[in-house]
Computed example of a mutant assay.
Amino acid sequence: MKVADPIQRARTLLHMRRPADAERELRGLLAQQPEHVLGHALLGLALIQQARADEAVQEAYEAVRLGPDQWFPHYAAAQVHYRAHRAGDAMAAVRAALDLQPQHAPNWELLARVHMLRGEWARMAEAALRGLSIEPEYGDLVALLSLACTNLGDTGQATAAAAHAVLIDPESTLAHFVQGRAALRAGDARRAADSFREVLRLDPGFGVARDLLVTALKQRNPVYRRLSALRGRFPNGWRLIFLLPAVPPVILVFFLLALLHWVAWVAEAWTTARLARGRTTRLLFEGAEARVSAACLGLVAVGAVLLGLGIGLGLEPVGTAGVGLMALVTPVQEAAHTGSPRVRKILYGWAGLLAAAVAVSVATATPVVAVLTVYACLLSVWIASRLRGRPPQAV
């Protein structure tokens, strides 16, 4: 009983999301019994929940070494590798757990999650269905099946599975999250927003749900929705550059695509600024996001004033500088909406250089510099897409 007590307490503490307390229990146990298999396995889980991946992996390996014929050490190791985003190691570990215990539905859930981490949606759906054949009312497996179907484009099956997941467990954040994802994919922005609000009610720290709620709220704006749809049709417009020597008129198409992106970014800034001021939505936006949107709207306003002055007073450098200021919306928004901190810094640096070029064009009264800056600003959407590379297959 003395051996079982710290294990039971550690399991309870992990379930209560108190990994530091669970770690203390387990370290006390392992000080007395250094080769306790469950102790090392659970310690690995406690450490990974504290984002101490290297220590967690060591404990997971130790648990597998001590109990290679037990399924739980492999399962715990797979959890550790999965949370550390080590998809290959997680796959090997969960396969080993399934070889030892194929009738345990949580093993299939973990396999589905590993496939999700690798962006293997069809295999994710297959793993979820295998688990549901063992335990048909397993809510998380139903939710994962919905998510896989959403990414496979089967919105009907995704919607039905998500509704079933919510019915099984109305308090599940995952169930409401996948319901929102399915609704967003089906074009039902209102229902998606309701689902993501419910996720945030249950778990205010669910950052992805917050971002998707903002997306759903913006999609309810018909102007923003249409511009986003049009912009999304030309994600690789940069390739038109190679046609310019052979077909010079294509430059007009290229310019129109870049202009369309600029209009969409202005709509993005306007929608975000409006939501940031709304009574029920202002808490969804971080200060930086609201400030970027306000700055972009300020660039448009100041640029329009300078353009009007340039035209009215016949000051060509001032007018072209105004256009350059308005065009800065594209590089600023591209930087703000980049997930990678390194790429974001590069794009903000690029935007800063372009802003300096606009200032130089006014100081030296050389409108040609401002014109070139406008072109560079509009081209920033494709520069950013090259820097980001292929978008990750993330949930």
Rank of each mutant, 00 (worst) to 15 (best):
D99H: 12
P68E: 06
D69P: 02
L66Q: 10
A76E: 06
E126C: 08
A122C: 07
L98T: 05
D140T: 10
L111A: 05
Y138W: 13
L145T: 02
T159I: 01
S172H: 05
E135V: 05
Q70C: 05
I134Y: 13
R86A: 10
E62S: 11
D169L: 04
G131N: 09
D99E: 13
M124A: 11
Y82M: 11
A112I: 00
Y75A: 15
A96L: 07
V94T: 07
A148R: 03
E135S: 12
L98V: 12
A160Y: 02
G119E: 06
D140F: 07
L145C: 09
Q103F: 09
Y138S: 06
H85W: 15
A84L: 11
A92V: 15
A90V: 12
A162Q: 05
W71N: 13
E137P: 01
A161T: 01
P170N: 06
A96W: 06
Q157K: 13
V166R: 11
G119T: 02
W71V: 05
Q157S: 10
A125Q: 11
A77R: 06
N151T: 00
A148D: 07
A160E: 15
P102K: 10
H85L: 14
G153L: 08
H104P: 01
W108K: 02
N151Y: 03
P73W: 00
P102S: 13
V64M: 14
H74G: 09
L147W: 04
P73K: 01
A158S: 13
N107H: 14
A96G: 04
L132T: 00
P68Q: 09
A93N: 05
G119Q: 04
G153Y: 01
F72T: 09
M116Y: 01
A84I: 11
A105F: 04
S146N: 05
A162G: 11
V94R: 08
A163L: 03
H164Y: 12
A78F: 08
A97S: 13
S146E: 03
G131M: 12
T173W: 02
H74P: 05
A158Q: 07
M91W: 14
L141V: 01
V114L: 13
G88N: 12
G88P: 02
L98Q: 08
L100A: 13
G156H: 15
R130I: 03
Y75P: 07
S172C: 08
H74A: 12
Q101F: 02
A97K: 05
H164M: 13
A84V: 06
G156C: 12
A63P: 10
H104E: 11
E137S: 14
A112L: 02
T173F: 04
A127M: 06
E137Y: 07
I168Q: 13
I134T: 04
D69T: 11
H74V: 01
M91C: 03
D69Q: 14
A158K: 07
L145H: 15
L110T: 04
L98P: 01
P170H: 08
I168P: 04
D169H: 05
T150F: 00
L117D: 11
E137T: 11
R65P: 01
W108G: 00
I168Y: 03
A77P: 02
P73F: 03
H85I: 09
L66W: 06
A77L: 13
L129P: 00
L144G: 08
V166A: 07
